[in-house]
């Protein structure tokens, strides 16, 4: 039976039958393009499925009113968005635009989606990557200190993993904000883009992620402690810290590396919430206001960008996996 501990269990990665990294990467790249194509298709047809006349909707969103429109009013909109083309032709036009890096034009702001998103993307990417770094540091320190110790320490360690992994971002964010920004005044209340404003949002994202990765790492860590190579290291007279850091940890982090690629996607979801808590600029706030106003080109554009980011992150993870686990490098 396969073990299914987490609801959104990430895919288990197996060694590829041809473990030459270049070929592996090429294969993964083709799969990544297919995933993006699927995402684009789903997003396009989701938009096409919105009930009601689209030209009227666009005009009403642009003017902030909800009224009936005459044919003369709608004509320029229909021409601008090519709404009189058959759906399939619109789909092909949309795909052609995507390949050329054109994500469409916002209904409300009447600017290219790419320009709107590009302004905000950097802030979100910095937040996400910082959070991933924090999560790794927290997770490694915590697991190395508590895994495979006495029963009490182990129980506390595992309990902290479980609790932190389940903390909702909005709640953790509010607590950190109340304690460290409003209470102690160590950090600014409104995030801003500077370094001090980055710490609390990144921690908010990192703590649940660290708990989540910690659960997998802890299991692997305790399994590795029972391995013969650990015994062999101990008989050579290596100390506990040396055994843990040099031998056990390297084994134990493999599942966490696999999780990291998947976690980046989850972290971006979290970033949407965290940006709202800390009033931090980023694509999350762009996305939420676009969903509220049904500005579909922005919604789809942001979703596509995040899907692309996620796919690239997973490619990087696949390469990192080969680098950390030398067994995958040798020809089978």
């Amino acid at each position: 039976m396969t073990r299914t501990s987490s609801a959104e269990a990430p895919p288990t990665r197996r060694a590829s039958p041809t473990p030459v990294p270049l070929r592996l990467v090429a294969g993964k790249a083709v799969a990544a393009v297919l995933v993006l194509l699927g995402a684009a298709t789903a997003a396009f047809f989701a938009q096409a499925a919105i009930p009601g006349d689209r030209a009227t909707a666009i005009l009403n969103i642009r003017n902030g009113q909800a009224i009936e429109r005459t044919a003369e009013e709608l004509a320029p909109i229909i021409a601008e968005y090519h709404l009189d083309d058959p759906t399939f032709v619109q789909y092909l036009t949309y795909l052609r635009g995507l390949v050329a890096g054109d994500l469409g034009t916002s209904y409300q702001q009447h600017r290219p989606v790419l320009a709107i998103v590009a302004d905000q993307l950097g802030s979100t990417v910095v937040l996400t990557l910082t959070a991933l770094l924090f999560a790794w540091v927290l997770m490694i320190v915590w697991v190395t200190l508590t895994a495979g110790r006495g029963p009490r320490v182990r129980a506390v360690g595992g309990f902290v993993d479980t609790v932190t992994a389940g903390l909702p971002h909005y709640w953790l964010g509010i607590i950190l904000l109340l304690v460290f920004a409003l209470g102690l005044g160590w950090f600014p209340v409104i995030g801003g883009t500077g370094l001090p404003g980055l710490i609390l949002p990144a921690l908010t994202l990192a703590i649940p992620l660290a708990g989540f990765m910690g659960q997998a790492t802890r299991t692997e860590f305790e399994r590795a402690l029972d391995q013969p190579f650990v015994l062999s290291a101990r008989t050579r007279g290596m100390g506990e810290a040396g055994v843990r850091l040099r031998h056990v940890l390297r084994h134990a982090v493999l599942p966490a590396i696999t999780l990291s690629g998947w976690a980046l996607g989850a972290t971006i979801s979290g970033a949407v919430v965290v940006e709202a808590v800390f009033a931090r600029p980023g694509i999350g706030s762009v996305l939420v206001s676009a969903v509220n106003s049904q500005d579909m080109p922005i919604v789809i554009g942001v979703v596509m960008l995040i899907a692309a980011f996620y796919v690239i992150a997973n490619l990087v993870v696949d390469v990192a996996y080969v680098l950390v686990d030398p067994r995958l490098r040798r020809a089978a």
Binding site: E8, G38, A42, I268, L287, V299, V302, A307
Partner: peptide
């Protein structure tokens, strides 16, 4: 393949896409 595609969407984004289409 569809499942792989859907899985590669962060779940919150999939939800937001649906809310954009259906209204809250």
């Amino acid at each position: 393949w569809l499942l792989e595609v859907a899985f590669s969407f962060p779940a919150l984004l999939l939800s937001l896409l649906l809310i954009a289409v259906l209204g809250p």
